[in-house]
Amino acid sequence: MMSYDSKANLKHNKSTGLPRKRFYRARAHSNPLSDSHFPVPITPYNVDYSEHYPEFFPSGQINNYNGDTTSSLEVKKIQFADIGCGFGGLLVSLATLFPETLMIGMELRDKVTEYVKERIVALRAANPGKYQNISVVRTNSMKYIPNFFEKGQLSKMFFLFPDPHFKEKNHRRRVISPHLLDEYAYVLQVGGIIYTITDVEELGEWMKACLEGHPLFEAITEEELQTDPVVKLLSSATEEGQKVARNGGQTFQAVYKRIAPSETENGVKNLGERSVLN
């Protein structure tokens, strides 16, 4: 009686065609310390853009621009990264706000990643020409950020409602930490912005303290906070944020800008001019 097609569609809402969350139930937490057994690109050049953004990269070839100067065209690269994107609410909101910007969600839980994948496929099908600029990948961003992005490639990074890891011995599992901020500073361009928000006050203070103490980050001004259209989305766009709002919870956000290192800090001048080859 039941054909294969209707069976597959059972997981999707009949009227919107979107996947239904209840069929993608997953654990709320995942251990970032355990060895990972999913494929990881060896370098950012090995990230297959045609798989993620077929409309932008229809050729079907790997986005290989490794030192190849023959392709004079400026190759489009991912600029926004939503770390721990969860069910993808923020990506979906950002997709139409910045239609020409490529963005990716990174999520460790495979079922949740599956859901976001299905969600994007459904959105693309229902809205031709839209949502082509968002994608998702299952990975451990705490380990593999440099495998996905080059130095200074990103202009925005999002850390929305991360796992709080209350116990002190588990603080090293937190996605914002002084040492990991070094890597985030590496992939962010100068002027790039890091957005964090949580409903756990203790974690909010922790994230703020980490960013405040880092020499390559600076809090953005009140004025910038007011004018940045993305800031409003932090608490409203994600599933987790909506849950907090429903329960009347408080949120704590920290938004910081990547700044150039001060010369007194590192004691090295004109790094860019230093070249071994010349």
Binding site: I42, N147, D182, A185, Y186, N266, L271
Partner: peptide
């Protein structure tokens, strides 16, 4: 990583990652 003059405060500035292995 850039080795700063005052390393006790941490070495925060990553010069590059050599990836390929």
């Amino acid at each position: 990583t850039l080795f700063p003059k005052k390393p006790l405060n941490g070495a925060h500035e990553i010069q590059s990652f050599c990836l390929g292995h």
